[in-house]
Design a protein around this nucleic acid. Structure first.
Length: 950
RNA sequence: GCGCGCUUAGCUCAGUGGUAGAGCACUUCCUUCACACGGAAGGGGCCGCAGGUUCGAACCCUGCAGCGCGCACCA
């Protein structure tokens, strides 16, 4: 740092240090180093999508993790920050398929077939995957990259399969025919969590149907979905509704399709709200969850009129068949209209479930899927409720609790190719090979029909040792399922005519294992018990994530942790805010309101981005993003840079011993302020209040250290006393070396550069800051001995504050007198007590006074000399004629009013016996002191007023 | 519909019972030998509204309003 540039230039610094840290394995975690004195600290990264790109949300999230990791390292912990990515089943498959279509390579993925298509996805992953990892490195993330994991890694996939088979064996995973959320765009089932309700503006159609048994009697029905009329199998009314009671049990003629107007029963069901619409509901069991339940209660047939892709099938009738569901809706209304059975259509807004990913309305659809009954729900719910696993901010605990209390089985199968293939082989009832299978194995399996057993039966078809399958019977359809991890079993099952399930598992079914699957867990206790990484680093300390995935991921990880590790996966969860733009909208690609973090890095520097984002991210609140904050971060880095540059320009020994006997009041003051800042920062960290940490750092460094202490020190640096000068350098080194360490978790690059540039690294042992600031000891508040030795008492603050106040008053006087800021003027000072020459020199510098004369005892200001005073001194600016008398008089007048008001307020309180008798002694004393202070102030103002010219 | 959160200076936000704060923005002065990505001085607030508790309320309680977010099968 011999030739320091005037402004900080991040580009030349960042890559250099990141490479250095990696070269020296600074991010690597070694479980062998963990001891009682060197505890482990671990975080697992929320895995971003492997083909994703960095967003501001990632910056916020990962900067917080980096801050936690870096601070823990400096505290002497063995830190593992475990990185990786997930395979994002639907998103990735959709992107690849769309791209191939665009290229004209295929019309549909079937053109390629499963294997060839998956090859293409892997190619895509190799090409685009890992971009986000490189981006994380750019912002300084100190992850142990040697342990990077991907949810589709062979070992990880093995964990997923293992967990599936384990839960299947336990009877928690079952095959069932249910109403699921079907995405007509992605052509797969979704879990409830992947469906978001959105208000949609549409119409409520009122149409009428005739009662078969009473020609001429018509019932009017309200519906938002007339296109599903062909799928109606009943109409329902509330049994208590007098309007329709006599019609229950009779029939109506279904309106559509025209060529097939079937007779539908009128049934009575409590679900119907007589107040809504006409009180008559069309029952469509195939296309509505509630209707499906009504259908079950009344044994209604199910007619499915929709294809998987959302178009109408032949059962919808010739008018609608082939049409998209939305076109069919219009068409159906038109047909009703044409036949005179549409009474009206009124504008109507209702909530419709949308596929979170594809953005299209989902279809409730009856289909066979794999479901999971969540494991370990009790311990998972109670650990948060009782606070042994803590959420920050804790209000999320309530949201979590509510969800856990009403938890529904999880639909885990997806009709996709990209993902973990379900390790189940099925032999259907009535298939070619079934009879042969039954004949051969029924006896050994204790029966091969539904009802024989629904619990999993352990069996080895291949006969190999350790090769086992878990066999269960599907009560719904009589097929036989065999789940296995064994290749030998798989081969044998195929030979027996079993067919592997074509579906893959929900991506979250792999992510929920993240905290231990990434640490090499295999699910065999013999091996897991000897896994040093797991032993040292599980459970992890903190999880940092967004509240939007609390159910998707956080809750499920907790359950998986208890189920497979017997312990919670993390002790604290920090929920970040959501980053929004200035209009409060979420950042999104489609809105184009999401800046590229790397652009910001090249424009302002990584540290600036980190600081800016952290500074504007209060705990528990969404973050309104404004580039100004990043600019502020850059400015701050520049300030830090220049403050260090100033230190370097003073030369002298680095980190000399501080001599207590030479400390000035300013020195003691800044040491006290540092101590105060250290304490505040520690408290803020404990409460995960990161923006408060940045604010304290900012205030201490900029307002206290630079604006006051450094400026005041210049008197000594330009002065003659070399001993004082050297001692001030020692104080500065003490403060700066602490400051750089404090800043390092937020600003890793610039602090490392300055740490070395100022020579602070040179004196330290290699592992304690000598090699890198990353491992320098975390600053501790001063202890009582140090404070005593350095004379850091309360009076130090009082003197400093009086000086600050006097300088402020004096500068204000200059401004009012229209003295340009750069012009030196004569001041006269009359101190009220002792005022050493050194202090006088400081005041002279800060007031830009020349000369600053001590008033002799008999000196009297000329009439008209402007003056200010406080406890420290009276200060005169003898510039008769220059001062704007009227302005000064008016200012002092306003000041006086304010002081009088304050005096009145305090006096009123003190005069109130209720107050004086009830209030604690300390508060009473404070008020009495305040009254004295204001009264003194008033005298000072009156003095200044009296001094003004006529 | 139920639940949660927010409402303080023009903007973004601190402030959990005792003198209303910060940063940015704004006005004025200053390119003074760390920094104009800077320095100095200054203006600006019935703390969403209405009640209550208290000697004392931005803070505690109740109600209301506006905004945001969860959860919920009203067709």
């Amino acid at each position: 740092m011999s030739e320091i540039p005037k402004a900080y230039e991040p580009q030349s610094v960042e890559d250099k240090w990141y490479a250095f840290w990696q070269q020296h394995d600074c991010f690597k975690a070694d479980p062998a180093r963990v001891t009682e004195r060197r505890p482990a600290y671990s975080i697992v990264i929320p895995p971003p999508n492997v083909t994703g790109v960095l967003t501001l949300g990632h910056v916020l999230n990962n900067t917080i993790q980096d801050i936690l990791a870096r601070k823990a390292r400096m505290e002497g912990k063995e830190v593992l920050w475990l990185p990786g990515t997930d395979h994002a089943g639907i998103a990735t498959q959709t992107v690849v398929e769309r791209t191939l279509k665009k290229q004209g390579a295929i019309k549909h993925r079937d053109d390629l077939g499963r294997e060839k298509f998956l090859e293409k996805v892997w190619e895509w992953k190799e090409k685009h995957g890992g971009i986000i990892i490189q981006q994380l490195k750019k912002i300084g993330a100190s992850c142990d990259w040697s342990r990077e994991r991907f949810t589709m890694d062979p070992e990880y996939s093995r964990c997923v399969q293992h967990v599936f088979v384990d839960l299947y064996r336990k009877g928690l995973i079952y095959r069932g025919k249910r109403m699921v959320n079907w995405c007509p765009a992605s052509l797969t089932a979704l879990s409830d969590e992947e469906v978001v309700m959105q208000e949609q503006k549409g119409s409520l159609y009122y149409f009428k149907v005739e009662v078969v048994e009473e020609p001429g009697t018509w019932l009017t029905i309200a519906t938002t979905r007339p296109e599903t009329i062909p799928a109606d199998t009943a109409v329902a009314v509330n049994p208590k509704d007098p309007r329709y009671a006599r019609l229950i049990g009779k029939h109506v003629r279904r309106a559509l399709p025209i060529e097939n107007q079937a007779h539908l029963p009128i049934v009575a069901d409590d679900h119907i709200d007589p107040e809504f619409g006409t009180g008559v509901l069309k029952v469509t069991p195939a296309h509505d969850r509630a209707d499906f339940d009504i259908g079950l209660r009344h044994q209604l047939p199910v007619i499915d009129v929709l294809n998987a892709n959302g178009t109408m099938n032949d059962l919808a009738g010739k008018d609608l068949a082939g049409l998209d569901r939305f076109a069919a809706r219009k068409k159906a209304a038109e047909i009703l209209e044409a036949h005179g059975t549409l009474e009206k259509a009124e504008p109507y807004a209702n909530n419709v479930g949308f596929s979170e990913r594809a953005g299209v309305p989902i279809e409730p659809r009856l289909s066979e899927q794999w479901f999971l009954k969540y494991p370990a729900t009790q311990s998972s719910q109670s650990c948060v409720a009782q606070g042994s696993l803590r959420f920050h901010p804790d209000r999320w605990a309530k949201v979590y609790d509510h969800w856990m209390a009403g938890i529904q089985d999880w639909c885990i199968s997806r009709q996709l190719w990209w993902g973990h293939r379900i390790p189940v082989w099925t032999l259907e009832k009535g298939s070619d090979r079934r009879a042969g299978f039954d004949a051969k194995f029924a006896a050994q399996l204790g029966g091969t029909s539904p009802g024989a057993t629904t619990t999993a039966h352990r069996f080895s078809f291949s006969g190999g040792s350790g090769a086992e399958s878990w066999v269960r019977f599907n009560a719904d359809n009589g097929s036989i399922h065999a789940a296995t991890l064994s290749a030998a079993e798989e081969a044998k099952l195929v030979e027996l005519g079993f067919v592997q399930d074509p579906d893959v598992l929900d991506t979250w079914f792999s992510s929920w294992l993240w905290p231990f699957a990434t640490m090499g867990w295999v699910g065999e206790s013999a091996k897991d018990n000897h896994n040093a990484t797991l032993k040292a680093f599980y459970p992890t300390a903190d999880l940092v994530t967004g509240p939007d995935i609390i159910f998707f991921w956080v809750a499920r990880m907790i359950m998986a942790g208890y189920e497979f590790m017997g312990e919670m996966p993390f002790r604290n969860v920090y929920f970040t805010g959501i980053i929004r733009d200035k209009q409060g909208r979420k950042m999104s690609k489609s809105l184009g309101n999401s800046p590229d973090p790397l652009d910001l890095v090249s424009k302002y520097g990584a540290d600036a981005l980190r600081f800016g984002v952290m500074r504007s991210a209060p705990l528990g609140q969404d973050v309104i993003y404004d580039e100004l904050n990043v600019e502020l971060g850059r400015n701050f880095c520049n300030k830090l840079w220049n403050a260090c540059r100033f230190r370097q320009m003073q030369g002298g020994d680095v980190q000399a011993e501080i001599r207590p006997d030479l400390l000035t009041n300013d020195d003691r003051w800044i040491l006290l302020r540092l101590d105060q800042a250290l304490r505040e920062i520690e408290r803020a960290y404990e409460a995960y209040r990161f923006s408060e940490v940045t604010q304290t750092l900012y205030r201490f460094f900029w307002s206290e250290y630079c604006d006051w202490y450094v400026e005041a020190s210049k008197a000594a640096f330009f002065g003659e006393d070399t001993a004082i000068r050297a001692n001030k350098l020692a104080v500065i080194d003490f403060v700066l070396s602490h400051t750089l360490r404090l800043f390092h978790p937020f600003l890793p690059f610039i602090t490392e550069e300055l740490w070395h540039g100022l020579g602070y690294a040179a004196d330290m042992p290699a592992q304690q800051g000598g090699l890198t600031l990353m491992t320098a000891p975390w600053p501790q508040p001063l202890n009582e001995d140090e404070k005593l030795e350095w004379g850091l008492e309360e009076s130090v603050d009082q003197v400093a504050n009086a000086k600050i106040e006097l300088v402020g008053l004096g500068r204000n006087l200059r401004a009012l007198s229209n003295v340009p800021a750069n012009k030196k003027v004569r001041f006269v000072i009359r101190p009220s007590g002792d005022l050493p020459d050194a202090e006088l020199a400081t005041l002279r510098l800060l007031l830009n006074a020349d000369p600053l004369e001590r008033a002799t005892p008999d000196w009297k200001p000329e009439k008209g000399t402007a003056m200010v005073s406080n406890n420290l001194a009276d200060l005169y600016l003898p510039l008769a004629g220059l001062i704007d008398t009227a302005a000064e008089r008016s200012r002092l007048g306003k000041e006086l009013e304010k002081v009088d008001a304050e005096i009145a307020k305090v006096q009123e309180k003190l005069a109130n016996p209720n107050f004086t008798q009830k209030v604690p002694a300390k508060v009473l004393q404070e008020h009495q002191q305040r009254l004295l202070d204001w009264q003194t102030k008033k005298q000072q103002i009156l003095g200044a007023l009296a001094n003004l010219p006529e």
